[in-house]
């Protein structure tokens, strides 16, 4: 539990940078500018497919864009943990493949067997980009589709209500939490039964 409180505190404090001493703040800002500049350079390189002549146009553009993003998006900074990312990406691939084959089987089957249900999934993630990211991830994993993100719950539409959907969604939530470097309270046990049967 203390771990979760620490996680929430870290999340809250990541929003207010002005509490840091002045020098630290300056270093952080420089660091951020540098990272963003590199990221935009990479994007330009990819978009022009490495054509060298385009940098005459690209470098000024990247510089102006870096300045513009710094002016615009001071509130929406979030940090993805590299370790969480390494764990999240293969998890996402495997889950989509598994779910996709399942849905494809249903679509190709002669009688389209399915058992749709609506679930309320209680969220453990704090407010902010992590929740939106979770909702989008749930939508992308086939077999589940997020329908309503409210204060405490995520309403999820599933194709097959008889599978252990809570356990699966909790696993997704834990991966998202690791990706954003947040810690969430331990999972509660749920009755794995469809509420509409």
């Amino acid at each position: 539990m203390t771990q979760s409180e620490r996680g929430r505190k870290m999340f809250i404090e990541s929003g207010k940078k002005e509490k840091f001493p002045m020098e630290r703040h300056g270093m952080l800002l420089l660091n951020r500018i540098f990272h963003r500049f590199l990221l935009l350079c990479l994007l330009w390189w990819v978009l022009t497919e490495g054509y060298p002549g385009s940098w005459w146009f690209g470098l000024p553009g990247v510089t102006v864009t870096t300045a513009a993003t710094l002016g615009l998006s001071s509130r929406f900074t979030w940090h993805w943990r590299p370790l969480g990312m390494i764990r999240f990406v293969p998890f996402f691939f495997l889950q989509s493949l598994h779910g996709g084959i399942d849905v494809a089987w249903r679509a190709l089957h002669r009688q389209t067997p399915m058992n749709p249900a609506l679930f309320d999934f209680p969220l453990r993630l704090p407010h902010g980009p992590a929740r939106v990211f979770l909702a989008n991830t749930v939508s992308l994993l086939p077999g589940t589709c997020s329908a309503d993100l409210s204060e405490e719950c995520l309403k999820v539409h599933v194709l097959d209500g008889s599978i252990a959907i809570h356990t699966r969604l909790q696993a997704v939530e834990e991966h998202v939490a690791a990706l954003f470097g947040l810690s969430i309270p331990p999972a509660e046990r749920f009755e794995e039964a469809s509420p509409h049967e």
Partner: peptide
């Protein structure tokens, strides 16, 4: 939404 067991 269509809920519960469904077959075409």
């Amino acid at each position: 939404p269509v809920l519960g067991r469904y077959r075409s």
